[in-house]
Design a protein around this nucleic acid. Structure first.
Lengths: 342, 342
DNA sequence: GTGAGGAGCTTTACCGGTTCACCAACGGGC
DNA sequence: GCCCGTTGGTGAACCGGTAAAGCTCCTCAC
């Protein structure tokens, strides 16, 4: 693909500057061995000729590549809706930009496909390392990718990442905080609408939810495990609101589902927050656009992405990278939570 | 970056299979010159050794690269929220996957930065071509990038793309359809909340809006040109609802602003759709989650992305690619539009 | 019997950088 | 005058593929 027109190479630059290829290379990599004067002359010539080192040639001889991979495995319609990923990606890129690196992105349809892709990327040396997201319980990616030797960082609790260094948000503590907050407002029937059971962090949140409910003497909490889409959030909310023992507060696993929940409640004539409190997760701008505005467990996804990427660079550099928690999500109370009526 | 452990090369495979490098290359590129038996033996050995051709070496000797670029220039927080891009990207990738190509993604802070980046990508031969999005009036990217020789396709009306082949949605016709629909419902005071004036398609929509309003004898339409964020949409809606000559219908330039508008209306006690009709643009799942659900001008963003990418491949292949319109947005009436109350 | 033609490989010359061994010139110490 | 260490380069080997030319057989026509 692509037959360029000009094809200026390091040789042309060297000839024009009256030096050898090697000198040009030294100059461009800021290595000692050329005088300041020649260095400047080389730069001037390069600028004039519009030359920049060919990246394939460069990574071939350096035996290193300056691209990292990210494969996301969710249906596209859903992905578009989740503010999470774009913010996460922008965090990744803030670090990549500092180092003149790039992000190779791919949306895949299944974990199996992702495994194939990551292995291929790595075998072909298209990427120097990768970020693994959406970790599941007993994630099938772990074994083959560890074996392949791909440098990677996983996003998820260390208990899920099977030896890959990881960066994670402390979901257990955050869930605890959320529930305690609602309990402090006076809620006793608290429900949770969670993401897919297969996803590692869903499981962790579920467990934490049950634990804190028990600890507070609020009995086994009701929770619905569903998908991540608004439609699923709507359906879950509807069924909770129609149940005999209707909750007075619902905690959602993302903000799309919370928005959908708000829609359903409004539709059913359930007044928010008087008759029902809603608490979203992954606070995005969306939570401030509804009426009432949505209280949420907020976390800085941008910084999270940046942190993950920094750890990845450590791994790639061969340093013994350490798994580390990201900042704890913060509760941001807004208009959708209040003490239960009566 | 990245010091791999094993380093199996084509030479190892050749040795193990008892043939020359050339034969392995021929086999892997499905070229004639090796017998079926040898081809299979080579594949077997490669599989066993876990070898795949090094992509840098490959693109170096082929003088071609199998990556295309996409730079998006908007603040991240905003980007995350717009379902548009992720869907667009997924459309791009559906085509890339067919051809074993990859997408190099970068979020940039300004057009100037984008120009630098695209030029660098191209000079370094990191990409074989690029997709230009968010075209402005007299877009500053056009001149330098044309000059650089970068193969590219622009997303936007041909009047904006200055010689780059383009794929565009017929915004003018779509705006006409939207306004006519509202007029047919009986609305006479129709307002529009548009995106940034600088953006080419905003200007086109604005012009079309005025034209159709005049044609229908509804006088000069009121429109607010604002950003793309929910907050801006909320502010615009608030000012429209407080104006002396309050509109009975509002058309938004994306769906986030429409959702925000709905929030504001609800907050102000303006009943939707009885007292006010709202029409969103870029129909995403979001429009089905609110109560009432949002009527929208819907278009298939995924296919749009795919179409753009196909045209880009034509350009890269050196074919005289032709600019072409994408499918026309379709009006999807839902709960937020109705005849105005008396 | 011979020459043309083709299938099936091998050889070799790149692609455009980086890196490393080597070298010339110069300055300084003794 | 001699040796030594720096500074500022050069030249060639390499990175791991692809592509085109060349070399062997083997078959088949005449």
């Amino acid at each position: 693909m692509s037959a360029p027109t000009e094809r200026i190479t390091i040789k042309d630059v060297a000839a024009a500057a009256g030096v050898s290829k090697g000198a040009v290379s030294l100059a461009f990599n800021n290595k000692p061995g050329v005088s300041e004067a020649t260095r400047e002359r080389i730069f001037a010539v390069a600028r004039e000729l519009g030359w920049a080192p060919n990246s394939s040639a460069r990574s071939l001889s350096r035996q290193a590549v300056d691209t990292i991979g990210l494969a996301i495995c969710r249906p596209a319609r859903l992905l578009g809706l989740e503010p999470f990923y774009m913010e996460f990606i922008s965090g990744i890129e803030s670090v990549l930009a500092e180092r003149d690196c790039s992000l190779l992105l791919r949306l895949v349809g299944s974990v199996e496909e992702e495994i194939q892709l990551q292995e291929r990327w790595w075998r072909e040396r298209q990427i120097g390392g990768s970020i693994l997201v959406d970790l599941r319980k007993d994630d099938p990616r772990i074994a083959p990718l560890r074996k392949s030797g791909l440098p990677a960082v996983a996003v998820g609790h260390p208990s899920l990442t099977g030896g890959f260094p990881s960066v994670w948000t402390d979901d257990a503590t955050a869930v605890g905080e959320a529930v305690r907050y609602l309990a402090a407002l006076g809620h006793r029937r608290i429900a949770r609408v969670g993401g897919p059971t297969g996803l590692g962090h869903s499981a962790i949140r579920t467990e934490a939810f049950e634990a804190v409910m028990a600890e507070l003497g609020l009995g086994p909490g009701v929770h619905v495990e569903t998908g991540f889409s608004g439609e699923e959030g709507a359906r879950a909310t509807r069924s909770l609101l129609l149940s005999s023992n209707r909750p007075t507060a619902i905690v959602y696993d993302n903000d799309i589902m919370a928005v959908a929940g708000l829609g359903v409640a409004t539709e059913m004539g359930v007044s928010i927050p008087d008759e029902l409190s809603l608490l979203a997760w992954d606070d995005s701008q969306l939570c401030r656009l509804t009426h009432p505005t949505l209280s949420a467990m907020s976390h800085d996804v941008h910084s999270f992405g940046a942190q993950v990427t920094r750890v990845l660079f450590d791994v790639i550099a061969g340093q013994e990278a350490v798994s580390q928690p990201a900042a704890l999500p913060q509760l941001v109370p807004r208009g959708s939570t209040a003490p239960p009526r009566s």
